[in-house]
Amino acid sequence: MNVFRLVADLMHLASILILLLKIRKTRSAAGISFKSQLLYLIVFVTRYLDLFTHWVSLYNTAMKVFFIASSGYIVYQMQRRYRATWDPALDTFRIEFLLGGAAVMSLIFHTKFTFLELFWTYSIWLEAVAILPQLFQMSRTGEAETITAHYLFALGAYRGLYVVNWIYRYATEGYWEWIPFLAGMVQTVLYADFFYVYFSRVMRGKKFELP
């Protein structure tokens, strides 16, 4: 564990707590892409299948359980209690391409052709693009609530900091895995426009609005 990874994990934790707070406080899931939330649920379920086969640490297990449980809870609540608060007509990104593309990528690019490893690799490729429906929805509406922008910033910073962690781990331990590194880079590049608007507007107290 190093400081980049710890802060990354805490940012990820914070992002979910901010999202839960947003939904509870505004009593609405407006502005949140259900499709992105569904993709994150698939990401965590497929990645943490090793929960039952590999023990790393209490920290590792607790975080995995939290990420699966919270993403499941959000998907469930968006379908139930908050169903009427968000508009599916705005959430029109075709996730079939993301689900299929990640499957193809994991079948071509993986380190071992085993059940667990293929699902783990699938989750890595899928996570890289899981934010696209959310970003697509925001580009259509042209704006976001400030709390939603904070949620997205924390979520984007998490994978961005993981990229820094991988460079640090390579330099200090010689540990290197190019698949998550590449996927983390792709995700960070997809976030570039969002980060720009976040730093230039939201951090200065203005509303998140696309030019």
Binding site: R5, D9, H12, D50, T53, H54, V56, N60, M63, K64, F67, T111, K112, T114, L116, E117, W120, Y162, N165, P180
Partner: peptide, 10 residues
């Protein structure tokens, strides 16, 4: 030896 790749990250 395990044929599984070890992942210690989240």
């Amino acid at each position: 030896a395990s044929t599984q790749v070890w992942h210690d990250e989240l």
